[in-house]
Structures are given as C-alpha cells and as structure tokens.
Amino acid sequence: MLEIKNLHVQIEDKRILNGLNLTVNKGEIAAIMGPNGSGKSTLSYVLAGKEDYEVLDGEILLDGENLLEMEPDERAAVGVFLAFQYPLEIPGVASMTFLKATLNAQRKARGEEELSTPDFIKRVNAAAQQLEIPKDMLKRALNVGFSGGEKKRMEILQMALLQPSFCILDETDSGLDIDALRIVSEGVNALRSPDRAFLVITHYQRLLNHIVPDTVHVMHSGRIVKSGGKELALELEASGYAEYRTGEAA
C-alpha cells in the first residue's frame, strides 16, 4: 500500500528526515513512536504534501503512484487523509458546509457523481451519532470555539465521511481526556478494514491500548531505528527512548 524509500527532507536548511524507509500494508495499523523532534510530524506533513518541506531524495508510493508529484488536494482524492494534531478553524463556514464541499470535491476529482443532499445528510448523521457529535455542533463554524476533544472528534468524523484508504493520525490523543480518547478510538476502530491502512503517530502507549497496532516503528533523528510488533510499544513505555539517544550530542 504505502512505500517510503530513502526519504530525505529538510525545512529551511534544517535536515529533518534522513533516509527514512517504511512500508505499510493494506489493512495494517502501523504505529510510529519516538521522542520530540524525531521528525514524526514532519513525516505526516510530507505525506500530505505541505509546502515548505523540501524533499531532497527518496520516494513515496501509494499503491504504486508517486505521491510527491501530486498537490495536496490530489493526494486527498487518491485517499490520503491526515487527522491534524491542531485542526484549523474556518470562521463563518458551518461544519456541515465544509463536509459537503470537501466530499463533493473529492468525488468530482475521482470522476464520481456528487452526493445528493438527503444521502449526504443521512451519512453525516450516522457518522456523527457514533462519535457522539450533537447536531448543533455541525451547524457551528468549523472548529471555531470547539474544545480540544470536539476538534479531534470532528477530524474523525471527516475521516469517516471521506472514507480514505490511507489515514494518518498525528498525535490524535494529545489533549484528550479518557472519555474523549475512548470515543475517538472507537471511531477509528470502526473504520478498520482490509482495504485501509493507518499510520498512527503518538508519544504514548496509552492510545495504542485503544487502537491496537499490527506493527510499531521507533523513529529517531529522522529514521526508523527499530520495528516490531505491538509488544514493542510496551517495552518503550517501560524503558523510554534513552537507548536510542546514545551517540547524540547532549
């Protein structure tokens, strides 16, 4: 599904990723863990196509297609979804309006018919109910005045609606209390499917108790330094990242 080969990335002359290799298969949930500054968020932005990140070398293939040649909206249309760590506010634009505009833009880009309004509303309501999102929240301007938990639930709602094939969760657990964490995790688990892959970026084991990964990768200094099964996350929780820091300038 996703293949990253020898990826080198810099931002404003600062090297962030240094020859990163990663493969995520269809149906797999891959977790990326690592200390602050190891390049986890950079990886998510580069996958989604944010400007300012300069790719020096390497390639990213999604189902054999070269993502690096696509604009962010084209990547979205082929199935890349990034759940932001800090979702943006769009004043004056009702969440419902935003959802419909994005869904139809993607359908159009793929040459599909636009969804009729009744069908659209049915889908939104079903997804919103599962994520315990009240209807009045859908009428409010997107993310404006939302609590941290509401913002994260709105991200997952968008994911549920857009049905992407490759989902990146960038520290989705940050700023969530226990209840919100449970709701969000259940939302993600409901989307698990043999046709869909997830890249879950997190600092903590906590999220992985709810969203159980198939593989865990440890990232450090812009590379994957260790890979293993879900038990690797538990080891990290016990021992911390200290062993990977050896040789680093203090």
Partner: peptide, 28 residues
Amino acid sequence: SEDQMFYCQQRGLSEEEATALIVNGFVK
C-alpha cells in the same frame, strides 16, 4: 493562513475552492 489553506486542500479542495470557501465564511 497557509495552514488554513493546507488544511482545506488536505481535505480535497483545490486552492481556488479553498479560498472561495474561506471568503464565503468571512462575508456571510
């Protein structure tokens, strides 16, 4: 902001569509 634009584009809107949407919200 560039971040707002990127957010909209990440959801599938082109640059023009994203600008139109944000401006529509502004003048509502």
